[in-house]
Nucleic acid binder design. Structure first.
Length: 204
DNA sequence: TGCCAGGCCCTCTTTAGGGCCTT
């Protein structure tokens, strides 16, 4: 049965060859963690061979090299395994619009589908941490003193940090605003509320 | 690889432009 609480989700992060699947970019790594009732209970990480050589900027940015990708499974093989990992869970990513485009693109290539809805940790952070210097994942992780797991810009490390940020935001909503066990839909609504109206929505 | 995007949000707004965030 599908869980609709915000504390039961799959958090995911793609490393990619560029910014736009519509321009031919492909995923080169997927990382994900399953959070069940506020606890990380499973992990997924695989490199994905995009079928072409990635440029030097991406190699430097991610630390993923062409030689690492040479022996990796192709995207469609990996994404079929990942579809099983997702199951019917809802999904979370930092700047989810980006990861959703690549998930949709890779799923279409593999002729697979998923049923979960997306929530965005960046949009939620912009609402509840309005005074943060910016809302990059790294900035928020340091601001909230969350554990830095591995290297930034590798898929599983970014995913774990996004997961910790997600759980911290749920905790802060409860502790500071009395929002208990919010639904996924409530968080989605909160993430789309104009900033100047957030305080009204969250008033205990 | 391919010349590199797209959605959200703010404001000096809505007949628009530019910054943020992701790789």
């Amino acid at each position: 049965m599908k869980k609709n609480n915000a504390d039961t989700v799959v958090v995911l992060d793609f490393e990619t060859s560029g910014l736009s699947p519509d321009m031919g970019d492909r995923a080169i790594e997927i990382g994900a963690v399953l959070i069940e009732e506020g606890k990380i209970t499973d992990r997924f990480q695989q490199l994905m061979n995009p079928g072409f050589k990635i440029n030097s900027f991406i190699q430097q940015y991610t630390g993923i090299t062409n030689s690492m990708l040479h022996n990796a499974d192709i995207g469609s093989v990996v994404i079929k395994k990942f579809a099983k990992f997702i199951g019917k869970n809802n999904l979370v990513a930092h700047n989810a619009a980006f990861d959703r485009r690549f998930l949709d693109s890779e799923m279409a290539i593999a002729q697979k589908a998923y049923s979960g809805q997306f929530n965005c940790s960046m949009l939620l952070a912009r609402r509840i941490y309005q005074n943060a210097q910016d809302h990059k994942l790294e900035t928020l992780v340091r601001l909230k003193k969350l554990p830095i797991s591995g290297t930034f810009h590798r898929a599983l490390a970014d995913t774990e940090m996004t997961a910790h940020l997600w759980l911290k935001m749920l905790e802060d909503l409860e502790v500071e605003y009395g929002v208990m066990k919010p639904s996924f839909e409530y968080i989605n609504k909160l993430s789309k509320t104009p900033k100047h109206k957030v305080a009204i929505l969250l008033r205990p």
